[in-house]
Simulated scan of single mutants.
Amino acid sequence: MKTVEELFSELRKFSPDVAEFNPPAVPSLIQAFEETHGVRLPADYKAALAQSNGFSIMGDEVYGIYGAQTDMPMSLEAVYRREHEEVMVPQFPYLVPFSSDGGGNFYCFDTRFAENNPSCPVVFWVSNYEYTDEDTPEVVYNSFVAFVDEVLISWTLKAFDYEGNER
């Protein structure tokens, strides 16, 4: 499995026309998010935030942390609040949506497993489906790194090169 450093080495091969990286996250905002929502974010995601506070490749985005006072609609805080408090089918409290599929569904951290682990499972939340404690969202990746490696890097490189040219 790749490390976060290896992942970002690969991500940074993409042209600035294709990839967008933000400055590193402020560590106190990460801690505040965890305390406010009673979750522990996975270590690999926090290591990625230390590299770039949110990033995107060809429009596929991983959310950054900007604090509760932000009006950024695609911040981790705004999406968490919306998907837990403002929708008809709210997410389970332990899920943290960190990336959208572009169709209103989300890739989420299952933070029940983040404590004392370098990562946690990534599940796919279908926003209009009513999950139960017995019928939970499907685990689609075993880690944040595996998610980024496949969804942002591999899927992009199947259709485009590092400059954004179609294959």
Results as ranks from 00 to 15, higher is better:
F8P: 08
L11R: 00
F14Q: 02
S15N: 10
S15R: 03
E20R: 13
E20K: 11
E20D: 14
F21H: 07
N22L: 15
N22C: 14
P23A: 13
P24I: 06
P24F: 11
A25W: 06
V26M: 13
P27C: 03
P27S: 05
P27T: 02
Q31D: 12
T36S: 09
L41W: 11
A43R: 11
A43E: 14
L49W: 10
A50W: 09
A50L: 15
A50R: 13
S52G: 06
G54D: 09
S56V: 00
I57R: 03
G59Q: 00
E61G: 02
Y63S: 12
G64D: 05
I65P: 02
Y66T: 10
G67W: 15
T70I: 08
D71M: 12
D71R: 12
D71E: 15
M72G: 08
S75M: 07
E77D: 10
E77L: 01
A78S: 12
A78R: 09
R82D: 11
R82A: 12
E83L: 10
H84M: 02
E85H: 08
E86P: 05
V89C: 15
P90H: 10
Q91P: 02
P93S: 05
Y94C: 11
Y94Q: 11
P97N: 07
S99A: 11
D101S: 04
D101T: 00
G104T: 00
N105C: 09
N105G: 06
F109M: 09
F109V: 09
R112D: 03
N116F: 14
N116I: 13
S119L: 06
V122C: 07
N128E: 14
E130S: 03
P137K: 01
E138T: 09
V139R: 10
Y141S: 01
Y141M: 00
E150D: 14
E150C: 08
L152W: 01
W155D: 15
W155T: 15
L157C: 00
A159W: 09
F160E: 11
F160R: 06
F160C: 02
E163I: 03
G164H: 06
E166I: 11
R167E: 13
